[in-house]
Computed example of a mutant assay.
Amino acid sequence: MTFRATRATGTTTTGSRALRFAALLCLGLSLTACQSLFGKDDDEFAVIEEEPAEALYNEGLVLSNSGSFKAAAEKFSEVERIHPYSEWARKSLIMSAYTNYEAQRYTDAITSAKRYVTLYPGSDDAAYAQYLVAESYYNQIVDVGRDQARSEKAAVAYRELIEKYPESEYAVEARGKLEVARDQLAGKEMDVGRYYLSKRQYLASINRFKTVVSDYQTTRHVEEALHRLTESYYALGLISEAQTAAAILGHNYPDSPWYKDSYALLSKGGYEPQENEGSWLSEVFRKASGTL
C-alpha cells in the first residue's frame, strides 16, 4: 500500500515537472507551435483566434440589411471591442448608433452617436450621428401631461445639429422638429399654468404663462398664454397688466378667439385693451420684433 502510494506520487511529480518544462519551452516558441505542442483541446493553453474586423463588420451589415438590427448592433459593438484602433471600429460606431436606433434601443443609440460626434466631429457622418441623437430623444417624447425632459433634450440636440452642421441634409428636418419639441415644452407650461389658474394660484399661473410668451413665442400657445395672463392679472386686480396683455394679443392676433375672450373680460369691468409700454410684456414683444 505504501509502495504503491509512493510510486503514484512520484509519477505525478514527474508529470508535473514535464508539464512545467513544456510551458517554459513555449516561451521561446510561437503561439502556433505551442498550440501544436499541447493540442487544440487543451483549454489551459488553447489559442483563441480573433475574427478579422472587416469580416465582423460585414456580418453586421448582412444582419442590418436583413432587418436583424439588435443582432447587427451587437456585431458592430464586437468590432469596437476586439479591434478598437482599426478603421472598421470607426465605421462600426456609427453603424452601432444606426442599428440601435432602428431596434428602438434609444439609450444605446444615443451613447454610440454621442461618442461618434466626440471622437470624429469632422467626419462626413458626424451630422448624421448628431441627427440620431436628436431623433432618439424625439421618438421618446410623451404627452404634455407627463415629464418633458426628453422634449428638452431633443430640442437641445436639434439646435446643436443646426448650429454645428447648418448645411447638412438633416438641418432642414431638424428645424421643423425643433419647433415641434419647443411646442411640446410650451404645452407643458400651459398645462401647469392652467392648473394653477384653476386653483386661483394666480402668481404661479402668471409665471408659467410668462415663460410661454417669453421663451416660446413661435409656438401655437402664445395666443392662449396672453389671454390667460389677461385673466390672471385681472383676477389679481392688476388692471394695467391685464390691459397690456389683451392689447398685445389684439395687435398680434386680431382675429384670434382668445382676443375676443380677453376683450369681453375687460369690457365687463368697464375697461378695454390698452398697452402700457413700461410693462415687461411690451419689452418682450419689442425685442421679438427687433424694435428694442
Rank of each mutant, 00 (worst) to 15 (best):
F45Q: 07
Q243C: 06
R17Q: 11
V212F: 06
A181V: 00
L185T: 01
S168A: 03
L281P: 10
Q201D: 13
Y233F: 05
S112G: 01
Q184C: 00
D147M: 03
I239S: 01
K210T: 12
Y196L: 05
E223P: 06
G290H: 07
S64R: 14
E87W: 04
S289G: 01
S289F: 00
T13K: 05
S282N: 11
Q217D: 05
L265A: 09
K268Y: 11
L29T: 08
V117M: 03
W258G: 02
A22R: 11
V144S: 11
I206W: 09
G176Q: 06
L292S: 12
S16D: 08
K188P: 00
V156N: 08
E169N: 10
A103W: 00
D42H: 08
Q184H: 03
A73K: 02
E163S: 14
R150K: 15
N58F: 11
A71S: 09
K164H: 12
Y271R: 07
P257Y: 00
E167I: 08
Q274Y: 06
Y259D: 04
Y116Q: 02
L24C: 04
K260S: 14
V117A: 06
A113E: 10
Q130H: 10
E102L: 13
N252H: 09
T2R: 15
A181R: 05
P254A: 09
A22G: 07
Q243F: 05
P166I: 03
A55E: 10
F69W: 10
